[in-house]
């Protein structure tokens, strides 16, 4: 038997956590909720790729829960922007209604200094989405680059990069986030900084995934063919190999969006995330927690929106996974 470490990595993932096993796992590959693009190679042929894409899209659109997820997410995103611009109150407006329960003027009530909670919750949604999309973009970019380089070039580059990934994986992510954000909070209030540190810790999953895909893809005939035709490494990676790994990348990016909202809200709950006067859902939950049984609207609305927001993204992610890989996990009809 070959040495396990030399074998392909076996990647398992759930919406919440992505775990990687480095072991002789080929017998198990594909069990569980693993993601791999199946159903033919893309080969860089545009026509075929397009039809492949259409098939995936078609599968995606035919899932009820995923569609509910998309609708909810889009609705929340649009609502947060619309409310931010057109609602009668901004989240910083200080009204004369103090601690009012929900009413027509303040649908989600007001807090003790007179902020309109509807405006605050929607501003929180907007901030969360902003942070999450930034994190996902950043994590995906870094992860794909590192994974592609490691998987394509192998050798010492691979070893070095993957040991670095190990280093990140060996520490509880939340603990490291707490450490980094505590340091960050001494320096700035900027949400971009927060997104940056979450992103720094989120790319390793994607990197492992892409690396595993690339390790197998580079042995494939079409890669050999491109090389024989004199294509540069860069071209082979970008034009021929990446399109074949796009499924898991997209699914993972979606899950990173959801995960980074979880991380952001947790850090904000700890007082290490978004700092007032900016708002995020996690911060609002933190501020409202003591009022859960008295001014319930200060707690219930942020909580509800937080859960619905994350859930909608999970549903999208799950739908995408199924669309890319219908054979694997038939989670629902």
């Amino acid at each position: 038997m070959p040495e396990p470490a030399a074998q392909e990595n076996f990647v398992i993932q759930t919406p919440e956590r992505v775990a990687t096993v480095e072991a002789g796992a080929h017998t198990l590959a594909g069990v569980g909720a693993g993601v791999e693009l199946s159903g033919g190679d893309v080969h860089g042929l545009s026509g075929e790729a397009k039809s492949q894409f259409q098939i995936v899209l078609n599968r995606f659109f035919h899932q009820r829960l995923a569609m509910i997820g998309v609708a909810t997410f889009v609705l929340l995103g649009i609502a947060s922007i619309v409310v931010g611009h057109f609602w009668q109150y901004s989240y910083t407006t200080i009204t004369n209604n103090l601690n009012d329960p929900p009413s027509w003027t303040n649908p989600f009530g007001t807090n003790s200094i007179g902020n309109d909670m509807f405006a605050q919750v929607m501003a929180g949604v907007e901030k969360d989405i902003e942070i999450a999309l930034t994190v996902a973009a950043m994590a995906t970019l870094i992860g794909v680059t590192v994974g592609a380089i490691a998987g394509f070039y192998r050798g010492w580059v691979d070893t070095l990069l993957m040991r670095f990934v190990d280093l990140v994986l060996v520490l509880p992510v939340l603990a490291v986030l707490i450490l980094l954000s505590a340091k960050l909070s001494k320096e700035s209030n900027n949400w971009l900084g927060l997104a940056f540190i979450i992103g720094i810790l989120s790319w390793t999953y994607v990197a492992r995934l892409v690396r595993a895909d690339f390790l197998s893809l580079r042995e494939r005939d079409f890669v050999e063919a491109s090389r024989a035709l004199g294509a540069t490494n860069r071209r082979i990676i970008v034009k021929h190999m990446l399109p074949n790994a796009v499924g898991p990348i997209i699914v993972n990016a979606t899950l990173t969006v959801a995960l980074s909202i979880v991380f952001e809200s947790t850090l904000s709950f700890l007082g290490l995330g978004v700092q007032p006067p900016a708002v995020s859902l996690g911060l609002l939950v933190d501020q409202g927690q003591d009022s859960a049984t008295t001014e319930w609207w200060l707690f219930v609305f942020p909580v509800a929106f937080l859960i619905v927001l994350i859930l909608s993204i999970f549903l999208i992610g799950d739908g995408l996974r199924e669309a890319f890989d219908p054979k694997k996990s038939r989670v629902r009809a």
Binding site: E16, S265, T266, G282, V285, I307, F314, V331
Partner: peptide, 30 residues
Amino acid sequence: GKVTDHAITVTNFVLLATPIFVLGLALKEF
């Protein structure tokens, strides 16, 4: 594919979408 499956799956997803501090606080307060 039956109701039990759907109920369990939906519950699982809602729990996955709930940050742990939210769940803890809700259990404590409510």
